[in-house]
Design a protein around this nucleic acid. Sequence first.
DNA 1: CTGTTAGCGCATTCAC
DNA 2: GTGAATGCGCTAACAG
Lengths: 357, 357
Amino acid sequence: MTRGEIPVISSVGTGSSGNRRPRLADVAAAVGLHVSTISRVLNGDTSLSIRPETRDRILATARSQGYRPNAMARGLKHARTGALAMVVPLLRNPVWASIQRGALQAAVEGGQVVMILDEPQDDVRQPTDYQYLVEESRADGLLIATARRVGGERPRTPAVPHVYLNRRGPRPGHNVVMDEEKAMQLFVERLSELGHRRLGVVEGFKVIDTVHRRVAAVRGLCSAHGMSVAFEHAEDTEAGGYEATLRLLSRRDVPTALGVGNLSQVFGVMKALREAGASVPADMSLVSFDEDDCLGFLEVAVTSVSMPLEELGGAAVRALIDRVDGLSGKDVLLSEPMALVERESIAPPRLSRRLRH
Amino acid sequence: MTRGEIPVISSVGTGSSGNRRPRLADVAAAVGLHVSTISRVLNGDTSLSIRPETRDRILATARSQGYRPNAMARGLKHARTGALAMVVPLLRNPVWASIQRGALQAAVEGGQVVMILDEPQDDVRQPTDYQYLVEESRADGLLIATARRVGGERPRTPAVPHVYLNRRGPRPGHNVVMDEEKAMQLFVERLSELGHRRLGVVEGFKVIDTVHRRVAAVRGLCSAHGMSVAFEHAEDTEAGGYEATLRLLSRRDVPTALGVGNLSQVFGVMKALREAGASVPADMSLVSFDEDDCLGFLEVAVTSVSMPLEELGGAAVRALIDRVDGLSGKDVLLSEPMALVERESIAPPRLSRRLRH
DNA sequence: CTGTTAGCGCATTCAC
DNA sequence: GTGAATGCGCTAACAG
């Protein structure tokens, strides 16, 4: 194995000579005090009484040497890494960017770093397959954001601190999710108001937890509002949305309004409608369950439900930090901020229009 | 501070009782041998002669105890963390998903983990602002993928192992980029073939390295092919693309074909063209420099240049691992695979069409 | 007010 | 064939 010796161009501020990173001992030697004193001063130990000038001298030389505490040594001592691992499905869907942003932000505030791992779509693993990261002391806990529930085997709870993010795991108290029910309510009630009676929903597969919850919510809401609803499940891709829409359009009772589970599918849905000669919103109203700026720039600007994505990421990190600290957590449900972003793609259905005129 | 004691539900395979993670010492105690022997066996030390049955006994008990080497302790010993830090602009642009995927894949193969950090768009930092991660021994090296070059101050090279990814840094030998020149060649030459003589390019701002290189390449190629070209720079957003297009359309010599720097801008460009009554490709040909599946599903399927994104991520990680190992690196230029994905959005310009008929 | 000591978990050099 | 000793860099309990 090669020596880890890197020829470092010593930059401004690196007072000490040599190319090794300064240790506590180097600072101690320079100041002429013991390592432990330096450690306590640098960590702001309040139970330590030290004369201000010494304190300042320590702080000054530490700074001038460019001293940085070694996270591994400190971690070894504390049995804490100061890092969290986040397992995400590396989808193209931009919602993950928002979730990651919220998570990273909260991590910084909690003094943690986040390492992100992707779960290849073609190799769905058990959440327990990632606990090695904690077992190897690479991370203190797991943020599990993989969308897909593994079918077949009974899901197992990781034996390490963890939080499920945007999906629910097998045990309560570990889940941070958004209020999909409320989101569906915004969708269904608005279309009900507009006079729609037959809804269609294009979604991913039911093994995905959010899909599961949305379907249940829409079903309940529709029956409460005297509406019928047809579901079509397909891949979270443009092609998936396209095919699902074709199936919906070939039904005897074609819906007058469509809800679409994610942004990629929206593109497929719109293509299918276009080809079928169904104009939006005259022949078909359309609502995306993913909000994205690009929706406002499409041929017909698409209405969407905006979800608290950054909040989700942030809340999950905070919940995980609590668990790592040994606190027993509660499930978190995020309802705010959530809104229907109304654009051009919804309108009363043809029939009720005619009746009005 | 709370104790790090987490009530662990001991799962199958965790032979040892108690809720602490097994150390080398635990395995040693169980087998009745010394820690150092266990260490050598587990690390496959070839210079060690040991009778196979003892070896097997060690391996078996280590497995049954669920032993995992502690990355911090090992790292402390080796002065290596086994982690790389990747700083990305957390843009919505899906190209980052591909780059991340390639990087994570290569990291796994190199026995490294990657932690991803985002650079907030509203707080552009120097690349040197991230070297604290290496200085604190949280990572062995830096993958710097921030798009924006900081204006004003002279850029400084981080004093730690690092690689610039999809942009060039101040020093040679640290850069892993894609062959933007070749990409531009695919664009310009195809349109030249089709008979276009006036190109327009909508791009991000020139402080972004890729933009800089693309502009230079297109300029050269156009003059070589006797074509004129107009550039418009704007934010990497839908609104940016929209406004840039309006400016291009208001010129006296409106281009007959447009190249667009990124996916978000494409949506804005298309909206502007739609509103101006310019049909694609009849009145205006269109090429995106970001490839994405959704382009094939738009009102007019958009032609694009497909770039080696995963390869970029992978190559960057490998280059960084080399640097961490003390090897002096070379700049890497990725040219393969690269292709023009032809869809419906390009055609001969109106004028040459008329001439043909 | 400051120094001493011990140990976190592991790998390695030397001794037996 | 195997064990003992040492130290990576840091913190914390205990002395003085």
